[in-house]
């Protein structure tokens, strides 16, 4: 892996953000919402509206408005929420923290389950364990988050009264209480990824176990255990990094639904209410933050992959 590969990947992140920002800006420009009317109310006088439009730069040409907005974003200024009148940045970044906590727990939980499931299915190919894993994963990829979430709340919270049905407490404030409220959301967000990743691990491992170097390791007289762990898994688990990084897109989408159902004050919920209220600056900032998260995670995954797998030479 060369320095120029890393530089190219970083340039790609910037290109991604420029494209996303243009797209989001275009969408929010077409949205039928008048920022001045939203801030001053329906009964504002035409003069007051005009003055505010002038002040907010709403009468400038579109490209100037875009440059103005993009320049602000580059300096960390995402504008002011039309609904609350507060700066968008600080509120959204604290919401992002909440969402990332949820996402990080979900990723760890998913990996802890999906990798062993995939390995067991590959090792016991065609046997009962393999069939059970693929049965579970078919069910898993077929249940949308809102269905899993609703069923989980009904069963675990309403009937068995094991866990609270919704709500959020920051872990720094009350660790165990916060953790208790995170359990159901984390499980719900990970179901789809567990199903997907375990299938990927299985098929990668099955492929790797049919290669010549595994046969060589077997013929060398290594124990099946050693062949699997030293030679098989090392190579089979590498592509998982890329798959998990691409799944972060699903994860962020799932987070929107799950935060809405469990009333978690994360970025997904902020975005949903901003979309419903047509709070343009919050929509723009929220989409930018989500896309940046996705782009950065994939950058890290690609660089890690290239660093771990010495066979791959990127130029």
């Amino acid at each position: 892996m060369s320095a120029s590969y890393i530089l190219k990947r970083i340039a790609l992140i910037f290109y991604t953000l420029v494209v996303v920002s243009l797209l989001v800006f275009a969408i929010t420009q077409i949205l039928p919402a008048d920022a001045a009317v939203m801030m001053l109310g329906e009964n504002a006088t035409a003069d007051a509206l005009e003055a505010l439009r002038q002040q907010m730069g709403l009468n400038d040409p579109i490209w100037l408005q875009y440059l103005h907005w993009a320049g602000g974003v580059l300096q960390g200024d995402f504008g002011t929420s039309l609904r609350t009148g507060q700066p968008v940045g600080p509120a959204l970044f604290s919401a992002l923290g909440t969402s990332l906590t949820l996402a990080a727990f979900a990723l760890v939980f998913m990996l802890l389950l999906a990798i062993p499931m995939g390995i067991i299915a590959a090792v016991r190919r065609g046997k009962f364990a393999d069939l059970s894993v693929s049965f579970i994963s078919y069910i898993g990829v077929s249940l949308p988050e809102f269905v899993t979430a609703t069923l989980a709340v009904v069963l675990v919270a309403d009937w068995w009264k094991l866990l609270p049905p919704a709500g959020y407490v920051p872990l720094t404030q009350d660790f165990w209480g916060g953790l208790e409220r995170l359990i159901l959301p984390v499980i719900v967000v990970s179901v789809m990824m567990i199903a997907h990743v375990s299938r990927m691990v299985r098929s990668e491992l099955v492929d790797v176990m049919h290669t010549d170097y595994i046969r060589a390791a077997r013929l060398k007289g290594l124990t099946p255990r050693r062949v699997l762990f030293r030679h098989g898994l090392r190579n089979a688990l590498l592509p998982t990094i890329t798959i998990v990084a691409l799944d972060v897109g699903y994860l962020l989408g799932g987070v929107i639904v799950v935060e809405e159902i469990f009333s978690i004050p994360g970025i997904g919920r902020s975005l949903m209410s901003a979309i419903q209220a047509r709070d343009l600056p919050v929509i723009q900032a929220g989409v930018m933050i989500m896309a940046t998260t996705y782009a950065v995670v994939n950058f890290i995954a690609d660089v890690t992959y290239a660093w771990l797998d010495k066979r791959i030479q990127y130029d």
Partner: peptide
């Protein structure tokens, strides 16, 4: 680049 926006969010 467009794929950096989650498909649910894009649809929303």
């Amino acid at each position: 680049a467009v794929m950096a926006i989650p498909s649910l969010l894009l649809a929303l």
